[in-house]
């Protein structure tokens, strides 16, 4: 390989060769969950994959600077949320509704898919912070404390944001009926 065509990554080097293995191990274990989390935030599979890849590259670069490697998952989860927000901002779009063709099959119209689509569509109409709170609490099953850490807000803010989000979601679903 020709030296010089890849960019030197000092932080990763300082963090030692273990960064490769450690970050890869976290990826193996959590990439699926984090991609699903980003997908729920963005509604777009391709962007979700990219956001997760970027988050793990960021973790790898910062490995030498992270004091508590046990919290690496929390770090990358926050990166995924930040990346999702940036992706939404940069494209200036509302997350896409469920990727199902307009003319659904006969089975699809009578079964649970319709109901799910309504809930997910309603979720995606919520403001970004409220959506984050609901996805972290009810998809990732995070306790309030960890949700606060991931969102970078206080515990009280998580509680109030979640309550407001649930109320708004309830109203939207009621209107659908």
């Amino acid at each position: 390989m020709t030296p010089g065509w890849v960019g030197a990554d000092r932080d990763a080097e300082d963090g030692g060769l273990d960064a490769d293995k450690a970050v890869s191990a976290i990826y193996q274990q959590h990439a699926l969950g984090l991609t699903r989390l980003a997908f729920l935030m963005l509604g777009d599979r391709q962007t979700a994959e990219d956001v997760v890849q970027e988050a793990f590259c960021g973790l790898y670069r910062a490995w030498g600077r992270i004091s508590d490697h046990a919290n690496a998952l929390g770090y990358v989860r926050t990166s995924v949320l930040n990346g999702s927000r940036s992706a939404l901002r940069s494209t200036r779009r509302v997350p896409r509704p469920l990727a199902v063709p307009a003319a659904a099959s006969a089975e699809a119209t009578v079964l649970a898919g319709e109901e799910r689509r309504e809930t997910v569509a309603a979720l995606r109409r919520l403001p970004s912070r409220q959506r984050e709170a609901l996805v972290l609490r009810y998809f990732a099953d995070l306790p309030e404390q960890e949700t606060a850490l991931a969102m970078g807000v206080s515990l009280g803010t998580v509680k109030s944001t979640t309550a407001r989000a649930l109320a708004a979601l309830g109203r939207m679903l009621q209107e659908e009926l």
């Binding site: 010089g4 960019g7 030197a8 990554d9 990763a12 970050v23 890849q53």
Partner: peptide
């Protein structure tokens, strides 16, 4: 899920 592509360490 695609494979992880980490940035390379420099020379």
């Amino acid at each position: 899920i695609p494979a992880l592509r980490l940035p390379a360490r420099g020379p």
